[in-house]
Design a protein around this nucleic acid. Structure first.
Lengths: 253, 253
DNA sequence: CGGACTTTGTGCGCGTGTTCACAAAGGCTT
DNA sequence: AAGCCTTTGTGAACACGCGCACAAAGTCCG
């Protein structure tokens, strides 16, 4: 441990994996705070967050040296430090684009406001929805997107539209100056350099679960590949693609 | 490339990172299929899926050798192979626990059925919701959870409940035999060995976006760390935790 | 005031995932 | 049938993240 200047830490670079866990730690800390806990050890906090304690300590060390050896971390202080690092000490203005089932659910989700996210606008293309009041907001028409973004100072756009509309709406919000997008539409968005996109895809999550579930039940497509090493029925490798032969057979197997 | 037996591929182990991308490829392939495209190169498919082409080829190589050099991949065949690997050639029975805003949105989400996921049950603890018909299903009372799981053969549970209820409901579905859980509640679930849990957390995604957004705007807490190398106002490292001194100052900064 | 005890912060080795770059394979043209 | 062109499949180097294990640092008690 080279003492020296106290800048040994990541100058600017907190690992992405760490950033993704900070919100989890923060939640655990809030929970502790509510229970009146003032101090917590890395071991306890790690358990609450569902991670390894060494990983937690290393994560926190990227923010600075905020623990006390022999004691642990002061909950309130840590809450503040993580909040500041994540940018939660300031307010973020969010616009939700698309007020279908999902958009409504998001508009009513309480987890946003409590974290410094202020849903300031709901927009939709459907005339029959425009004007409706949802969770204290009046739905605006998508034509007003640019002006709403400007007026409200929107910095994060949440796309909860059908897949077909997502890319063009994304282009519009980006053109309007938004540089962070949370995308619920099942499409890969392409955005210019400097714009961040995060994707939430329900169907992909289920598919990943299905993969593991299938594995537990034993091999792909049911039945697995009995004799892998040789003999007939070997894995179709370079079998010459879809002659429609063993392809169809496999379908019916 | 050592020819030999054609088992050089992962015997049973497809990397987790690859599994997470297969659904994305699958979606891109479906899109191509709808447009009547019969053959696609790794370069084209990679672009459509938003990944590097080498990565895509390596991912696909884990499933087998399904391409034709000089040509590319046959779309229909690849769709089938990926579907089979992910276990989408069979039906998966899904139960949604918690019929609030989010649960309703999920119940109405079309992206499930089209991928072999059949929502077979909706459950809630709120008497005033039980009996209601949503998306063709009648909401059952949570007391019936065990019997519903057994009767319908539920293999995947989707938790869309408040945080406080999630763990105990998770315990119940696991006890009832479910081994895959998709959790929307903002808590870390603990489950026994052999049970898979995937988490979708809206607020975490926003917090990660906020972190990057803040960074673009220049440093944490606004203002960044002007002189990092020396002088006063240096990064609080080992400054002795919350003496409440510069902690409070920073809050008001 | 000193020593025992607790807990942090991190060096280090390991495994996983990503990317480059290229030889081999197949199709296509002449 | 021979050679050219395209594209796959993968070896190898590199980057990243994880977790162990431990020294350093601090607390607390006698």
């Amino acid at each position: 441990m080279t003492r020296r200047h106290n800048r040994t830490r990541a100058e600017r670079g907190i690992p992405e994996a760490t950033v993704a866990r900070l919100p989890v730690y923060l939640r655990a800390l809030h929970s502790l705070q509510e229970r009146g806990v003032a101090t917590v050890s890395s071991e306890e906090l790690a358990t609450a967050a569902g991670v390894n304690s060494a990983k937690l300590r290393k994560d926190l060390s990227h923010l600075g040296s905020y623990g006390t050896r022999g004691v642990g971390y002061e909950v309130e202080y840590l809450v503040y430090q993580i909040s500041r690092e994540l940018g939660l000490t300031q307010d973020w203005v969010v616009a939700i684009i698309g007020v279908g089932n999902l958009g409504r659910a998001l508009a009513g989700y309480g987890g946003f406001a409590s974290r410094g996210f202020r849903v300031a606008a709901l927009l939709d293309a459907d005339e029959s929805v425009v004007g409706e009041r949802i969770s204290g907001l009046t739905v605006r028409h998508i034509d007003d997107l640019e002006s709403v973004v400007a007026e409200q100072g929107v910095s994060i756009a949440v796309l909860a539209t059908p897949a077909a509309a997502a890319q063009s709406l994304c282009d519009r919000v980006v053109a309007a100056g938004v540089t962070s997008v949370l995308n619920f539409a099942p499409v890969v968005l392409s955005v210019p350099e400097g714009v961040d996109v995060r994707k939430v895809d329900l169907s992909i999550e289920l598919q990943i679960l299905a993969f593991h579930e299938q594995r537990k039940a034993g091999g792909p497509g049911e039945g697995g590949w009995a004799g892998e090493l040789d003999g007939p029925g070997d894995r179709p490798r370079g079998e010459g693609p879809p002659g429609t032969k063993q392809y169809i057979e496999a379908v019916e197997a």
